[in-house]
Design a protein around this nucleic acid. Structure first.
Length: 707
DNA sequence: CATAGCCGCCTTTTT
DNA sequence: GGCGGCTATG
């Protein structure tokens, strides 16, 4: 009976696919056919008589969910299985059980810009100085707490030092502001849903009964809140299947806890564990480099990558003078490959930080190479898009003060700061919402006649829009855009208004697309969906263009030829990652590189620039230590590109951690770490100025002090 | 009340 | 090298 499904599967894949009851952990290396296993498993469950309605598969991005739906359908697995991300699932749960959580179903999902405004307000409200308590830091800390399921009250109860107590106050204030506005941030979606399941056994029972089989992909990147959700959902039936690879855990900074996957077997003692170690994606050569690199991670379970492909071409590591030469060479290599018959859509360029994309883009434009930058959220950050969405948000959620503030005078309609302040003061004083105060502006004594009239016109306009609230989104969006005056103000703005107009048109087209495909289109649902958009969601694998994306976005994808640019100390590993001080962070950066490398099927082109322009300044760089960990001898390849400069390379002194050293510019410091790589030896030095630098000894003039 | 211009912070990665 | 926020000016 398994015949059709199992035909293209290896024995271990089959083992995972046809394990029906009880907990299952699939430890899947890169390129091991993990996605296929999951989709086949969904189909196998259905074939075994499980109703699709009882299956819930969790993916990392909406894009991955969409793809999985398609693949499952292709296997004949009838529609009905719930396939989405943790965040989307939580939105659904929260909407369904809103009354149990004490929120309104029309809640706004606050993105980081909205969060910033709220946290600033909260810090101000607490009368703390924003220099001592930087809002972004506070937000980070709050996010970490939420990911750990620590709410403001319980955090405050345990706060026993000055910083914690201050943070607790800010956290409480931030939560108050969000709830006043009927807003939830990304972390809230998970936390509130997890609390709901924890505190309401009946809800937990209902959902557990609904989702009798839970499959979670990329389990190595789940955080505590997601873990708690998963545990609660499967508490009755234990039918959990987690797939992942500890070596590909790259979201530690946002709360992902690698221990979740490492502890799976003790969490579910009767778990069956299947290892998928064969790699069907990459050449043996690429795999060897990946293997060699990741072996440098000490905090890791040993694992082998078993190649099934031939050796293929060598991994290329090339040094370039600066990022312009680097990106130009990438563009030329792309052209060469294209001439040789490779498809543009089968090539990708990865980088550590988004700012690197500009140089690549410029090179590609110059060489007339079609490309796509995989950065979906950027679109929704544009001013004109945010403006239109703010109108829609306030219609759905009248408490969304941020949205209202954004549009009350956009486009300019003569409602200035003073007026706004007076209305807000009235609202605060009378305990009504900002919008309510706008509606009642006629009765606000501090306002004179002209502002009152303008506010009335504005309030009336919103009322008119509200009449169209039910039904399709695109027509309403179009109407709002035209009648709000936004369209006119953009048309009046000349050339740059033109591109803004086009963007809004794209937004409306997107909304129309949503209207067509959604089961039950509604504005709330639409807004919720787009707020959960991820970068890769715009990636169009079908269009024949080279993909440009960050290493993080590359997770889960594969390409024939992969370029990884800017593999330099400070960039990969990134200096702000804390890799110089903390081995765990260094290992995460290494995993990031590992993820990038293992995306490549045939060609891997790694490069670094010896000078890189950072904030307008050309700075000397050092090749990444990771380059030396690939087991690829790249000195010769480097030499070809004229690696001879006026630098007199000097053999580094033999340094040991703790050694006191002096540097011409940075002064005195102490060696924290020394990596002996011959003439390329690198030392991490913490200077007395407080800064920590990674220095390549042949360039940095370090001298030993004392001893 | 609108606008222009300046200052400061920023840039790691993202659902 | 860019954006957001603030201030001074009209």
């Amino acid at each position: 009976m398994h015949s059709t499904l199992s035909r293209q599967l290896t024995p271990s894949q089959r083992e995972a696919v046809f394990h029906v009851d009880g907990p299952l952990l699939v430890l899947a290396g890169p390129g091991s056919g993990k996605t296929r296993v999951i989709t086949h498993r969904i189909a196998a469950l259905i074939e075994a008589g499980v109703s699709p309605y009882n299956i819930c598969a969790i993916t990392f991005t909406n894009k991955a969910a969409e793809e999985m739906r398609l693949r499952a359908a292709a296997l004949g697995a009838s529609a009905g299985a719930h396939i989405s991300t943790f965040h989307s699932l939580c939105v659904r749960i929260l909407r369904r059980y809103a009354d149990r959580v004490g929120i309104n179903t029309n809640f706004s999902v606050y993105d980081d810009a909205d969060q910033n405004r709220c946290i600033k307000q909260a810090v101000k409200d607490c009368e703390f100085d924003t220099t001592n308590f930087p809002p972004s830091r506070m937000l980070d800390a709050i996010s970490t707490l939420k990911n750990k399921l620590i709410d403001a009250e319980s955090f405050k109860a345990d706060a026993d030092d000055f910083f914690s107590r201050t943070l607790a106050e800010i956290y409480l204030g931030y939560e108050r502001i969000l709830s006043e506005r009927n807003g939830l941030d990304f972390d809230d979606l998970l936390m509130k849903a997890a609390f709901l399941l924890r505190d309401c056994p009946d809800v937990c029972g209902e959902l557990g009964n609904r989702f009798k089989f839970l499959l979670i992909d990329e389990y190595q990147d789940t955080n505590h809140a997601q873990y708690a959700l998963a545990r609660a959902l499967v508490s009755q039936h234990n039918n959990i299947c987690a797939t992942g690879d500890p070596d590909q855990s790259i979201y530690r900074w946002r709360g992902a806890d690698i221990r979740n996957i490492l502890a799976f077997e003790s969490d579910w003692p009767d778990a069956k564990v299947v290892r998928l170690e064969e790699n069907f994606r990459s050449t043996a050569t690429i795999l060897a480099a990946a293997d060699h690199l990741i072996a440098f991670n000490r905090n890791r379970k040993d694992k082998v990558l078993i190649p099934t492909q031939a050796e293929g071409q060598a991994v290329r590591i090339t040094a370039f003078e600066d990022e312009k030469t680097e990106t130009k060479a990438i563009a030329q290599q792309v052209k060469e490959l294209a001439v040789g018959g490779a498809l543009l859509r089968d090539m990708a360029v990865f980088y550590r930080v988004n700012s690197q994309s500009r140089a690549i883009e410029e090179a590609f434009i110059k060489e007339k190479i079609p490309y796509q930058i995989v950065r979906g959220v950027e679109f929704y950050r544009r001013k004109e898009i945010r403006d239109v969405l703010a109108y829609l948000k306030i219609l759905v959620n009248p408490l969304d003060e941020i949205a209202l503030l954004r549009i009350i005078n956009t486009p300019a309609r003569g409602i200035g700061k003073t007026t706004i302040d007076r209305v807000r003061a009235y609202a605060a004083h009378n305990g009504v919402s900002f919008l309510e105060a706008v509606r009642k502006s006629d009765g606000i004594s501090s306002l004179s006649k002209a502002p009152k009239a303008k506010l009335a016109v504005f309030a009336n306009m919103l009322e008119q829009f509200k009449k169209d609230l039910a039904g399709k989104v695109a027509p309403l969006a179009e109407r709002v855009f035209n009648e709000s005056g936004l369209a006119d103000s953009l048309r009046a703005a000349g050339a740059e208004g033109q591109s803004a107009l086009e963007n809004v048109n794209e937004l409306i087209n997107g909304a129309a697309d949503y209207d067509q495909h959604a089961d039950q289109p509604s504005l709330v649902d639409y807004l919720h969906q787009i707020s959960l958009f991820s970068d890769v969601d715009v990636y169009d694998a079908a269009s024949d263009r080279v993909a440009l994306m960050t290493l993080h976005a590359a997770k889960g994808l594969e390409f024939g030829h992969v370029f990884i640019a800017g593999v330099e100390e400070g960039l990969l590993p990134h200096e702000r990652s804390g890799a110089a001080e903390n081995d765990d962070e260094l290992e995460e950066e290494r995993r990031l590189f590992f993820v990038g490398i293992t995306r490549a099927k045939m060609g891997l082109y790694v490069s670094f620039a010896r000078y890189r322009t950072i904030r307008g300044q050309s700075l000397r760089t050092i090749p990444s230590q990771f380059l030396f960990e690939l087991g690829v001898d790249f000195t010769e390849q480097v030499e070809q590109d004229e690696y001879n400069e006026d630098d007199t390379s000097r053999p580094g002194p033999d340094l040991k951690p703790g050694q006191l050293v002096r540097h011409d510019i940075f002064g005195l410091g102490r060696v924290k770490k020394y990596t002996d790589m011959g003439e390329n030896s690198v030392a991490v030095v913490r200077f007395n100025s407080g800064q920590t630098k990674t220095l390549m000894l042949k360039y940095a003039n370090l001298s030993k002090v004392g001893m």
